[in-house]
Design a binder for these strands. Structure first.
Lengths: 219, 219
DNA sequence: CAAAAAATTTAGACTTACCTAAAATAATAT
DNA sequence: ATATTATTTTAGGTAAGTCTAAATTTTTTG
């Protein structure tokens, strides 16, 4: 099977393809993985040799079908472990990412399928992300980031793009939780800040935050 | 913290000290870890630099107090994960060792203490081995291997020394399970084989097997 | 469209944890 | 007590994954 480093690259490339379209650049990967561009280049060559990605010098990469499925296996493991940590071990949603980053590399198909059953086949992880099934199928729910919404529209807060503990702790502090109905009251053109309101309060968020909140439309 | 390789050495040295007395030889470690003696020498120097072991060239090693506590932390994690796998995920006792070998290296004190609580603070793992507590305290239950028993005596089968799947599957096949009362009927001096009986059946085991079965005396 | 800037790759080096082969030391046997 | 054997260590090398610095290619810009 693949090394931890390889798995981390696959997972990252998968996520970046989703966010930035199908050709992912060396620097983008380096930024996400917190490594240097030269290290990324080395790894991309290795992944290309194993037919996990298509890589052409100076052109960026994208996953092959094999690469995509391999990435989804890692993502499946990561999200199932997050469910376990929150549902069974009573962790908060802002504490589980780093631990799941380790657990996702444990090798055993049987283990992950038994874990899936133990958790009663959850469909979403604690951050609202869909969990791929054993065959690598994922629901792609069409959610909007607040950045894409017009003034006056509302939606249900169903997921975050960034699941780092800093960001989630910020949301905790601001009393924003999955399931909340959020309405965009105003967008300030000067600094691109968003005025939003929930059932209980109003607040101002930066566009950076707005981008990381995923809402599902309500009519 | 320590690398996976370092943790594996600590765990192995701890186990070997128990079995073979306090000075553990390079070759013994190499045998257990399935590596070469020269690699062991390299690692022992590294562990000695970190004050985890006392090592003198050609003299073998033993753990320092720091080394012993570090080893016990790894062992604690290994055994708690084994409990989880058997009790919660319905694994058989012969399937969990290799998976626990991976899980034991996941770094998070909080995780392991929450897991401990989730499992209701088990005292023994599925192979009858005691689980160290968060402070590194272990029950050392005085059990006998069948090899140390006299003809005619009996005991309760409470643990195994070898938790490899091959050995545990052998026990399954021979219908020997933890909790069984086992009596030594006869010892054949020619080949050092043991004739034993349980409530339900009699069988002959080699001294190799006898050595790996731990019994608790009944009066 | 050429020059400057940005992105990417190459070259060479480092660390960890292994390995083989040879040398050194310890244990055993005659 | 010395010679043989077994064990352990040293020396030198490999692969994975990272790094820095320099070179190359692409993109941007005046």
């Amino acid at each position: 099977m693949y090394s931890q480093a390889e798995e981390n690259y696959l997972k990252t490339i998968y996520a970046l393809e989703k966010d930035f379209g199908n050709e992912v650049s060396t620097n983008l990967i380096a930024g996400k993985i917190k490594t240097k561009a030269s290290s990324v280049t080395d790894m991309l060559k290795k992944l290309a040799n194993k037919e996990l990605v298509i890589y052409k010098r100076y052109q960026g990469v994208y996953l092959t079908e094999l690469g995509r499925l391999s990435a989804l296996k890692v993502i499946r493991k990561h999200r199932l472990w997050e469910c376990f940590l929150v549902q069974k071990l009573q962790f908060n949603w802002d504490e589980v990412h780093d631990i799941a980053e380790q657990l996702e590399h444990v090798k055993s198909e049987l283990l992950i399928n038994k874990l899936d059953a133990f958790l009663r086949f959850p469909k979403l992880d604690p951050h609202g992300d869909p969990i791929p099934d054993a065959q690598g199928r994922v629901l792609l729910s069409k959610t909007l980031s607040i950045k894409d919404m017009k003034i006056g529209t509302a939606g249900i807060f169903v997921g975050v793009k960034d699941s780092s503990s800093v960001f989630l702790q910020y949301l905790n502090k601001k009393n924003l939780a999955l399931g909340d109905k959020i309405r965009v009251i105003d967008i300030e053109p000067f600094d691109d800040s968003y005025h939003i309101e929930t059932k209980t309060h109003r607040l101002v968020i930066t566009s950076n935050v707005a981008e990381n909140l995923c809402l599902k439309n309500v009519k």
